[in-house]
Nucleic acid binder design. Structure first.
Lengths: 233, 233
DNA sequence: CAGTGGTCTAGACCACTGG
DNA sequence: CAGTGGTCTAGACCACTGG
C-alpha cells in the first residue's frame, strides 16, 4: 500500500501536530517550503495543506501562512436512534394502530404546517411492540398538503411510517427531548403499572421535506427500556 | 463578487441536480467534457467535481464516471446544550457544592477509568442555580490518574468544571439520555415538591481526553425546565 | 518588498472500466 | 480499446500580508 505523495506530506504534518511538536497556532512550512522538503510540485504540497485545512486541522491565511488550528471543541451531540427501527425487521415486531383520522388543527399545529387554524390535518396513533412488549407510543400529525391521500391508504401491507417515508422522505429532522409522566391511556397501552417505570422519555420530532414540515411526531418511551447514544456500560 | 471558474462549474452541476434534471444516478459530464464546455483546464474541471464529491453530492468511480449520489438520509441527531452553560456568565448564576471528596471506585467506575476496583477516585456534587432557582444537579466522577490534584484546588475563584476543562479538555464526548425519578435528596435540592414536575431528564456524560475517560457526569434536570434541540414553538 | 495562499494552465503517466 | 478518474509537474498571474 504505497501512499501518494500528498498523503505522505499530510502524515508528516499530522505527526508533528499529534506529537505536540507543533502546538496550536504554530505556523507550518509554507507550500513552497514543502515543495523543497519533499521534492514535489506546489500543487501537490498545496493539496496536503488544503485537505488538512478542509478538516479544520489547519487554518490558512492568504498572504500570511498556514497555522495549526484550535482543535474543534467536541460537539455535544447524540445520534437519536429510533428503538422501533431496530426491531421493525425482526420477527418479534408488531404494532397496533389505535386511531387514524382527520382532526381539526390546533393553532400550534396550524402554524407548524402553515395552514389555517381549524383546518383539517391527519393524525395517527400507533403502539409499537417488541415480542408483545410495548416499546413506543407514537402520535404523528401529517401535513395534508404534502400527503393528501394519507387516510386513503391501505396499511395492511405498508405501515404509515413506511408510506410517509416514501411520499415525503425527510431531508432534515428536528428533535426535542423531554421527560414526561405518561397519560393514563399511555400507561395502559405501554403496559406500565403503578409501581414500575412511571416515567417516560418523549421525543418530539419534526420531519422536513424541502422547506416544509411534513410530519410532527411525539414518541413516548418507557424510560427503563430506553436510552439514547452509545451503551456506556 | 466574481466567482472563480471552478465555482461556476459547481453551480452549473448543482443547478442541474436541484432542478431535478439530473436525478440520482445520472452520470455527469466527465472532467474532459467540462474542459470543453467551460474552456477550462482539466485540473479546474476536476476541482468542481471533486469538491461536490467531497460533499457527498456526487460519487466518482475511477474508470467509469461521476454520478449524482443518493441524498444522504437526514441524520437523526440533536445537539445537547448544557443549560448551565447558558446562564453561567450571567448575574443570576450561582452554584452550591454539596460534596467534594475521594471515594472508593465501584466496579463500574473502576472499569470506566481503567483502575483497580476499590481504588480511589474523586467525586464532586454541585447544584447549579439560575436566579436562585435550581436548574441542574451535577454529579461528576474524576479520573485520578489524569487529574491527581483535583481535590487540592481552591475552587473559590475557579469552578471545578472550569478547572477540569483546563486540565483535561475534552476531545470527545459521549452522552446517554434517560428519564428518571429524582432521589429524595435531589428532589429537595432541586426544589421539587411532590405534586410538580416529579420527573427529571438525566444526561450521563463521558468526557474523553485522548483515548481515556477523564470524567463521568450525571446531570439531572427538572423536566419542566429542560429540553434538548431547537425550540419547536 | 519578498513571501503567502488562491486560482489556473497544458501537459503527463497510471490503473481501471466496460463495451 | 477509448474513456474515466487519480496523481503529479512546472510553470503562471493575482491579491494580499507584514516587516
Amino acid at each position: 500500500m504505497k501512499l501518494p505523495q500528498f498523503a505522505l506530506i499530510k502524515q508528516y504534518i499530522q505527526n508533528h501536530i499529534d506529537s505536540g511538536a507543533w502546538p496550536v497556532g504554530t505556523r507550518t512550512p509554507s507550500e513552497n517550503d514543502l515543495c523543497g522538503m519533499f521534492s514535489v510540485s506546489r500543487m501537490t504540497a498545496r493539496r496536503a495543506l488544503q485537505e488538512l485545512a478542509d478538516q479544520n486541522i489547519l487554518s490558512r491565511v492568504p498572504g500570511s501562512g498556514t497555522f495549526v488550528a484550535d482543535l474543534a471543541p467536541a460537539k455535544p451531540s447524540v445520534e437519536i436512534y429510533n428503538p422501533v427501527d431496530r426491531v421493525r425487521q425482526t420477527d418479534g415486531y408488531s404494532s397496533r394502530t389505535l386511531s387514524l383520522e382527520a382532526i381539526s388543527a390546533t393553532p400550534e399545529l396550524a402554524q407548524l404546517f402553515h395552514i389555517q387554524a381549524g383546518g383539517e390535518i391527519f393524525k395517527v396513533v400507533i403502539v409499537h411492540l417488541d415480542r408483545a412488549q410495548p416499546i413506543q407510543w407514537q402520535t404523528t400529525y401529517v401535513n395534508p398538503q404534502l400527503v393528501p391521500a394519507f387516510l386513503k391508504q391501505n396499511y395492511a401491507k405498508v405501515s404509515p411510517d413506511a408510506y410517509l417515508d416514501w411520499i415525503v422522505p425527510a431531508n432534515s429532522l428536528d428533535h426535542q427531548l423531554l421527560a414526561v409522566l405518561p397519560t393514563p391511556l399511555q400507561r395502559r397501552e405501554l403496559g406500565l403499572n403503578a409501581e414500575s417505570s412511571a416515567v417516560c422519555l418523549q421525543i418530539n420530532r419534526r420531519c422536513w421535506s424541502k422547506q416544509v414540515v411534513s410530519t410532527y411526531s411525539e414518541l413516548v418511551h418507557p424510560a427503563n427500556q430506553f436510552y439514547l447514544g452509545p451503551d456506556l456500560a
